[in-house]
Simulated scan of single mutants.
Amino acid sequence: MADADSQRCVSALLNGITQRLYYGNTEITEEFLKNELYAEMTEDEFRALHDKMRSLLKSIASADMDQAQLEAFLTAQTRKQGGGAVSPEQAAALARFWKTHRSRVRESLLAQSRWEPALRGLKWRVDLHTSASRGQVSSSPVALVELELGRTGESSEFVCVEFDEQKVNLVLKKMAELQESIDSIVHRS
């Protein structure tokens, strides 16, 4: 296969993998890609190539590599010994593909990682309670928090919560514990 043909097939393979992996196009299957692009390859050869390209693409996408990072990564991949090495044609196709598709893949990853309904907005203020429920006068501060929640393409719902000083301290304590848990996980890896 000529270099241009090889790069074209690798680019098409990367596009097919991206369509399925990041854009949810279930019509693009491994079998379809093999029959359309690499009909002359055995199943095992194609599976090895497909898995290698998919793995590389996932690594590049999860790191959201810029051009300098990508160049260093691909250089390291081409210098590998054995079956895991990337050919210069494959590296060139990956670089060209990522330059074109980086922003769209990133948007897809962000969309896949969002929880629904999402927090769209938050407003808060501190007020003084001037009267209590039984006519008693109280001047304790309260925090009023308004959360705007909604799903993509739908109108928002609003939730209003009132916290006294004790509840605010409890929420802050829980948030600190959550931050400590996240930090311990991040620093372990």
Results as ranks from 00 to 15, higher is better:
Ala143His: 03
Leu119Tyr: 05
Val145Gln: 07
Val159Gly: 02
Ala63Tyr: 06
Arg96Trp: 00
Glu148Ser: 10
Glu148Leu: 12
Ile28Arg: 10
Phe73Ile: 03
Leu119Asp: 10
Glu162Gly: 12
Glu148Met: 07
Val168Asp: 07
Leu144Tyr: 03
Phe158Tyr: 15
Glu27Arg: 12
Thr42Pro: 04
Phe73His: 03
Ser59Trp: 07
Leu94Lys: 10
Gln166Ala: 14
Ala48Gln: 13
Ala72His: 11
Asn15Val: 02
Ile28Gln: 05
Val159Phe: 04
Glu27Ser: 14
Glu154Pro: 12
Gly121Ala: 02
Asp44Arg: 15
Ala4Pro: 08
Val142Gly: 13
Gly150Pro: 01
Asp3Leu: 08
Gln179Gly: 05
Leu119Lys: 01
Phe46Gln: 05
Lys52Met: 09
Lys123Met: 08
Phe32Met: 14
Arg54Pro: 07
Gly16Pro: 03
Ile182Trp: 06
Gly121Trp: 02
Ala85Ile: 06
Ala63Met: 04
Thr29Met: 00
Leu128Gln: 05
Glu30Leu: 00
Ser155Lys: 15
Thr78Trp: 01
Met1Gly: 13
Cys160Tyr: 13
Phe46His: 04
Val171Met: 13
Glu148His: 07
Ala12Met: 07
Gly16Leu: 09
Glu43Gln: 15
Gln179Arg: 14
Ala92Lys: 13
Lys80Arg: 15
Thr18Ser: 14
Glu180Ser: 12
Glu157Tyr: 11
Thr152Ser: 15
Ser59Val: 02
Ser181Gly: 07
Ala93Tyr: 03
Val161His: 08
Ile182Met: 10
Asp3Pro: 00
Ser140Glu: 15
Asp127Pro: 13
Arg47Asn: 12
His50Ala: 05
Asn35Cys: 09
Thr75Trp: 08
Thr18Val: 06
Glu27Phe: 13
Gly16Tyr: 06
Glu116Pro: 00
Ile28Asp: 11
Leu56Ile: 11
Trp124Lys: 09
Gly24Tyr: 11
Ile182Asn: 00
Leu110Pro: 07
Ala72Ile: 08
Lys58Trp: 09
Glu40Tyr: 15
Thr18Glu: 12
Val168Cys: 12
Leu14Met: 02
Ile17Met: 02
Ala76Leu: 02
Leu37Tyr: 01
Arg120Leu: 09
Asn25Phe: 05
Asp164Ala: 01
Arg54Met: 03
Ala85Tyr: 07
Thr42Cys: 01
Ser189Val: 12
Leu14Arg: 10
Ser133Gly: 04
Ser6Tyr: 10
Cys160Val: 14
Gln166Tyr: 14
Tyr23Val: 07
Thr152Lys: 15
Ala72Met: 13
Met53Asp: 04
Leu70Asp: 06
Gln112His: 08
Ser87Ala: 03
